[in-house]
Design a protein around this nucleic acid. Structure first.
Length: 596
RNA sequence: GCCAGCGUAGCUCAGUGGUAGAGCAGCGGUUUCGUAAACCGCCGGUCGACAGUUCGAAUCUGUCCGCUGGCUCCA
């Protein structure tokens, strides 16, 4: 998101053209292997390209080097890319045996289409392309995947080949090495290495078990958010994870969520479901008594477990699960209070993000998620309310002078939202936090308040999550810190390491004192060498190691080794203890700062 | 859910038709050591599950379960 210079922009554009041409060369290679191949589309993507094919047999990874070899021959032959224009009628004749291309031709608004030929391969394509196949740089085919034609599961599934291309072989190697390095940050790998969470086939997929260490992190996050919200005027409550299905029919969620809800449980003439959302429970709390305008904004918050059926192929570690805990809230307010409330919500989210060290424009970006007036299946019908709500959210973002992007067809059924989008290590973007404007629920539930003029009026609801779904936020944090958590989140904050067994008493005394003060300190009392203990504490990413030997016992000091490898001179224990406690309460990201 | 690949000890992995191996971890011992791996020994697996082919299956086939990469979907 750093603005690129003119030269960079030109170089990137050139690279993009070359990648697109590489996709065409791959298509030619595939055509030579399968003369009956039907072609889908073959665009460029970040770092490479893909092409979708309908082939007489499924591809295996062994096919990739064969295709690559064929591609190299095409590049070596240095055949020119030839551009041609023709009428749609002519194009239909040319692509008579290509049903997918015919479909695309039919949908083009222009009368003329452009085609590119190179060697035996002809494709309908806007271009541009490199002059000839010899201009193609270094490339490598990466993987095979299934992909529905035009992205709809109702369409046939095509075979997609992903490839990467750069100007030089060296850049490819660097890129591949970088990809390998990213795998080391994958929260699933770190979760296993640091023993943060596990899965059991018997418990079920998408249902993580947090270990003791993982649970410490979660508890810290929960304490942090609950305290912060209570400070900011939220009422923190508990509501049941189950509800009668009628609740969700009343709320209007049922038709939109029935595919993602778990089946109804019938018991004693009642029909219960595991809740996919918390909102209707919160409305029932609000509606339990008549409300005055003096009580608004009425901010209800809960760490709410929610249950959603996600297709098995969509599950991803802690990032995508079937039961998650959302730091959820519903703010019921007067229409004229919404803008101020929205600012306060975003202030809270930005505060949380800054404590985590997530930077706007780097780790996250704002997405204004809009509805689609024409899609009455997916969105509640009320054009005027949509226009108003979208304008309010847009104004809030503009008032904050923050950059954002707009996305059509990403809203909730009850209104537009501002989503805080974060990228995971694999480059996939997900919603971390969300703020939603809801003009539907108050009507559905008959939520009202008595205004100062004694009239009964309809409020607005703002749905929001402050630290998002805790599982997902943990996943983002694990990847963000690569497992090296700031002290307040670290499962073990201090590891006391005696140099030899005779220093154990002193080590235990220090450990006990830290624990008494609420510091998560462990003593590595095994009969092992100090070097091994240091190594293990390093691998476990323990922020502070206190090495204690003869010198420390004698002087009542500790020798502080920091996770980064940095080492502080021997410190009086009291001074270290004070410093670490300060680091923890402040939720600082520095490991320890010793006052002079 | 769909397409493809994968599943061997707690972890990382070797073993491709003749009946299972390494390193680390764990356990027992020796060592008592100053900032990222001391040494010796031991234990550990119905090779994801179930069916089939075969004289014989970790290895071949089928079904199921799980994981990985995509597609679709989403906090």
């Amino acid at each position: 998101m750093v603005p690129e210079s003119k030269q960079e922009a030109e170089a990137n554009e050139k690279l993009d053209v070359m990648r697109h041409s590489t996709a065409h060369v791959m298509a030619e290679a595939v055509l030579s292997m399968f003369p009956d191949a039907k072609f889908g589309i073959g665009p460029t993507i970040e770092n490479g390209f893909y092409y979708d094919f309908d082939l007489p047999r499924t591809l295996t990874p062994d096919d990739l080097p064969v295709i690559e070899e064929k591609m190299r021959e095409i590049v070596a032959a240095d055949t020119p890319f030839v551009r041609e224009e023709m009428t749609k009628a002519e194009a239909r004749k040319l692509f008579a045996g290509q049903p997918y291309k015919l479909e695309l031709i039919d949908e083009l608004p222009e009368e003329m289409v452009t085609i590119y030929r190179q060697g035996a391969f002809t494709d309908m394509c806007r271009g541009p392309h490199v002059g000839s196949t010899g201009e193609i740089g270094a490339f490598k085919l990466i993987s095979i995947a299934g992909a529905y034609w035009r992205g709809s599961e109702k369409n046939p599934m095509l075979q997609r080949i992903y490839g990467t291309a750069f100007n030089t072989q060296r850049e490819i190697e660097e890129y591949l090495q970088y990809q390998e390095a990213l795998k080391e940050r994958d929260h699933r790998k770190i979760g296993k290495d640091l023993d943060l969470f596990v899965f059991s086939d018997l418990v079920g997929k998408g249902l993580p078990i947090l270990t003791e260490k993982g649970s410490i992190i979660r508890r810290e996050l929960e304490r942090f958010v609950v305290d912060e919200e209570i400070k900011r005027g939220y009422k923190h409550i508990y509501t049941p994870d189950l509800a009668k299905v009628e609740l969700y029919k009343t709320s209007g969620h049922y038709p939109y969520y029935k595919d993602t809800m778990y089946p109804v449980m019938k018991i004693d003439e009642e029909e219960l479901i595991l809740r996919p959302m918390t909102c209707p429970h919160h409305y029932q709390y609000y509606a339990s008594q008549p409300r005055s305008y003096r009580e608004l904004p009425f901010r209800i918050a809960e760490l709410a477990k929610q249950f959603r059926y996600e297709k098995s192929g969509e599950l991803l570690g802690l990032m995508r699960v079937r039961m998650f805990c959302l730091a959820d809230s519903h703010i019921i307010c007067q229409k004229e209070q919404t803008i101020n409330e929205l600012h306060q919500v975003i202030d809270l989210i930005e505060h949380v993000a800054s404590v985590f060290g997530f930077e706007h424009g780097k780790e996250y970006r704002y997405r204004l998620s809009l509805g689609d007036r024409k899609d009455e299946e997916k969105y509640y019908k009320d054009d005027e309310a949509w226009d108003y709500a979208e304008a309010v959210l847009r104004d809030v973002l503009i008032q904050r002078k923050t950059s954002y992007f707009e996305a059509e067809n990403e809203a909730a059924f009850y209104g537009p939202k501002i989503d805080i989008q974060m990228k995971n290590i694999a480059g996939r973007e997900d919603t971390a936090f969300t703020v939603q404007y809801d003009f539907v629920s108050p009507k559905r539930f008959g939520l009202t308040y008595i205004d100062s003029d004694g009239q009964e009026k309809e409020p607005i609801v703002i749905h929001r999550s402050s630290i998002g779904a805790i599982e997902r936020t943990m996943a983002f944090l694990i990847e963000h810190y690569a497992g090296a958590f700031p002290v307040w989140l670290a499962p073990v904050q201090v590891m006391v390491i005696p140099v030899s067994d005779r220093h154990l008493d002193y080590a235990n005394k220090i450990g006990a004192e830290l624990k008494k003060d609420g510091v998560r300190a462990d003593v590595d009392s095994r009969s092992e060498r100090m070097n091994l203990k240091i190594r293990q504490a390093q691998l476990d990413k323990v922020p502070c190691m206190l090495v204690v030997g003869d010198r420390e016992v004698e002087n009542g000091t500790v020798s502080v080794r920091l996770r980064g490898g940095g080492q502080l001179p021997a410190e009086p224990f009291g001074r270290f203890s004070k410093a670490i406690k300060k680091t923890i309460t402040e939720r600082a990201r520095e490991l320890v700062t010793l006052d002079s």
